[in-house]
Structures are given as C-alpha cells and as structure tokens.
C-alpha cells in the first residue's frame, strides 16, 4: 500500500531529475522491477563503462531495502561475481543502515560513490583488495 504511492513519487523524480551519470527506469510499467545504468566516472578505472543494474522492490518497501544487483560483470572488491553488492545501506539494521529516509535515488548515488571509492575494510572479494588497494593508493 505504502509501496505504490512511494514508488510513483520516486519514479517521477528519477525521470525528471536523474542523478548525475545515472539513469533508472521501470521495465514495462511494472514498479517492482527497475533497471538502472551507471556511467563509469571519469578518471576512475571504470571510465567509459556502462554498468547495468537490476533493482527489485520488495512488497514491504520502504520498510525493507530494495535488492540491487549488478548485471554487468564488474571488477570491484565489494561486488562479487554474481553482481551482489556489499553496501550497508542495502541491509536492514542493526547489520545494515537501511532506513525509509533513503531512496532509490540516494542508493544509486551511494553505489556510484562505492565504485569510485572501494571499502577495503569490508571486502567481498579478498583477492581483489590487494591488487586494487595498490591501484587506488
């Protein structure tokens, strides 16, 4: 009930004022499955890359975080081979930091930031950390 009202507002905002370098849309009027594309930021290892993401909105949204997954394979210490993202905002408290004041918009921005600044303290892919750490340092 809360989901449909909220998604309507969120989608219209994503349409009219998308975050920089990000586009997000609903697949054929279905508000439960969204798709997004993040542009690799200039100067980062992902420059000129297009990264596709699938976003699934659960029934209890916004009381539960959406499920976000990379569809494009990406070499990143916090994203595994399946495209799963290790980001506290995508998890329920107390483990994570999801709260209803966050939006799809802010999540996509966080993912964009995470791509540029990997979190080496909490890696999903241990072997990548050593290599990337030297690359970013």
């Amino acid at each position: 009930m809360q989901r449909s009202a909220r998604m309507k507002k969120e989608l219209s905002l994503l349409m009219t004022q998308p975050p920089f370098g990000v586009s997000c849309w609903a697949e054929d009027e279905n508000i439960t499955h969204l798709q997004a594309i993040i542009l690799g930021t200039e100067g980062s290892p992902y420059e000129n890359g297009l990264f596709k993401l699938a976003i699934q909105i659960p029934d209890r949204y916004p009381f539960e975080p959406p499920k976000v997954q990379f569809m494009t394979p990406i070499y990143h210490p916090n994203i595994d081979n399946e495209g799963r993202i290790c980001l506290d905002a995508l998890q329920m408290p107390p483990k994570g930091k999801w709260k209803p004041s966050l939006t799809i918009y802010s999540l996509l921005m966080s993912i964009q930031v995470l791509m540029n600044e990997p979190n080496t303290d909490d890696p999903l892919m241990g072997d990548i950390v050593c290599k990337v750490y030297t690359l970013f340092a």
């Binding site: 009930m1 809360q2 009202a5 507002k9 969120e10 916004p62 009381f63 209803p100 004041s101």
Partner: peptide, 12 residues
Amino acid sequence: VECGICYSFRLN
C-alpha cells in the same frame, strides 16, 4: 507535508 516514509499525504 508528506509522510517521510510513504511519501504520500493521505493514507487511508
């Protein structure tokens, strides 16, 4: 002012 959770004004 909309509700900070569901983003709507009138809910039921």
